[in-house]
């Protein structure tokens, strides 16, 4: 077993009296894609920024590629790629010029034109960045994050502002990086994105990791029990059951025919996530 690319133990961060991270622990294995999910202000960005070296932790341990990010030198920085949550640079350079310049900073880099093509900006290559739309600028951010052939890529809400088609293209790009063996840490508000891309996910709420596991394990068995919904004269009914077919058959027999608005629903990651966070907030109210 090789050492995990990210190792976090009892990570803590406070700002004065406010505790942003209250002891979280997880590993990300080499080549794995890991998603951090959680409501705004839960501590996702604090976690990712500590791992990127932008913030100093108050307690606990963290290593990225075997190095403490608080003391990550230039050699370490050349092995990681960072896509920040926002950027507002004046953008008086073209997409091509910007990537060609950043490529020079890294000891190894990808081909500039290939990266521009991978983020779908080939026909905007000669356009100044300030003239691009928000979604296009975001793609430049992603391109800058991967130009240096990172072994470890951080993506902080990378697809905010993308249209659905751009989001799907972006997913393809990330799958390609994953096939090349890049380890990825992703934060996102889009649960379908986490389900599409990541091998495992952690859910953060109130600075604590409230669940962690493979995407098909999050929330536990209980949370995945299907739901049968139907309508009768007294209103809408729901029944959680591990045997939905039997419930439907019983309804069919007792209702003497087709039940109205019948649905069998398997909770999506989004339903499970909302349950988890809702439960956490209720317990800590």
């Amino acid at each position: 077993m090789t050492e995990p690319h990210v190792r976090v133990r009892d990570l803590r961060k406070s700002y004065g009296a406010f505790t942003a991270l209250d002891g979280i622990s997880f590993d990300i294995e080499r080549g794995e894609t890991f998603a951090l999910l959680g409501p705004n202000g839960a501590g996702k960005s604090t976690t990712i920024e500590i791992l990127e070296g932008y913030r100093d932790r108050t307690g606990g341990e963290a290593t990225v590629l075997g190095v403490d990010p608080q003391h990550g030198g230039l050699a370490w920085k050349s092995r990681i790629g960072i896509v920040l949550q926002s950027s507002g640079e004046s953008g008086n350079v073209s997409v091509q010029e910007q990537l060609a310049y950043f490529a020079k900073i890294y000891p190894q880099h990808r081909d500039v034109d290939e990266v521009i093509a991978a983020v779908g900006l080939t026909d905007k290559a000669k356009t100044r960045i300030k003239q691009l739309s928000g979604g296009q600028r975001r793609r430049v951010d992603v391109a800058l994050g991967i130009i240096g052939k990172p072994e470890m890529l951080f993506l902080d809400e990378p697809t905010t502002g993308f249209d659905p088609e751009a989001r799907r293209e972006f997913w393809e790009l990330i799958r390609g990086l994953k096939r090349d063996g890049t380890t990825i840490l992703l934060t996102t508000h889009y649960l379908d994105e986490a389900a599409q891309l990541s091998d495992r996910a952690g859910v953060i709420a109130g600075g604590k990791l409230i669940d962690i596991g493979r995407i098909d394990e999050i929330g536990g068995q209980e949370a995945r029990v299907p739901l049968v919904r139907w309508r009768d004269p007294s209103g809408l009914h729901e029944e959680r059951t591990t045997e939905p077919a039997a419930v439907v058959a019983r309804l069919f027999a007792s209702e003497k025919g087709e039940p109205r608005d019948l649905e069998v629903v398997r909770p999506s990651l989004e339903d499970i996530y909302l349950d988890l966070v809702g439960q956490y907030e209720k317990d800590n109210a």
Binding site: E52, G53, Y54, L74, A75, K77, S78, I80, I82, L84, S86, S87, G88, E89, S90, F102, I105, Y106, P107, L144, G148
Partner: peptide, 14 residues
């Protein structure tokens, strides 16, 4: 202010 330095600080630029 606009994030240029933050971006550069995440790269191996001395």
């Amino acid at each position: 202010g606009d994030g240029t330095l933050k971006r550069l600080s995440g790269t191996p630029l001395p």
